[in-house]
Amino acid sequence: MSDTAFAAVFYLFAALSVVPAIMIFVGRDVVHGAFWLLGTLAGFAGLYLMLGADFLGFTQILVYIGGILVLLLFGVMLTQRTPVLLGRTRAARAIPAGIATVALGLFLAKKLIGAPGMSRLSESLKVKGATEPGATRELGSLLLTDYILPFEIASVVLLAALVGAAYVARRGSGENP
């Protein structure tokens, strides 16, 4: 597989991540925004795969797209009456928002330009682990040895969320089916 093909695929996923993000920004329909987010998250999953992070890429699809985005959609459909929620943004808000965006963009660009291996795309993506498929095993081992405490704490976080969901469910059970 040539460098050109690699670069082409990279730009495909980069476009898939960025273009829907812009559509969310300029669009006014919240539900459309949620659907556009599907493209952005899928593009990121593709980039993860190109880095050789297969487990991360697939869990990104499984959890973010298959789970959290569904929650987002249900939430939006639950709360809104009309498809258009956002009114026109006032100019007074647009100016500080624009300044913040440009500042963040400059900051990130500076970091990126200084990063090693930026001259060649495939070099910059050839990080440790990207040459060896099958990082899942190492990831699992680390999770169950070095990072066992955060791992178990995650279950407590999930427990808290579960209790919250049960509470919402009980309050909601009396409403329209």
Binding site: T59, I65, G66, G134, T136
Partner: peptide, 14 residues
């Protein structure tokens, strides 16, 4: 794929 089974589940969830 090293995590092939995961791919089926990930894509099906779409």
């Amino acid at each position: 794929l090293d995590v092939g089974i995961l791919w089926v589940f990930a894509v099906s969830s779409l």
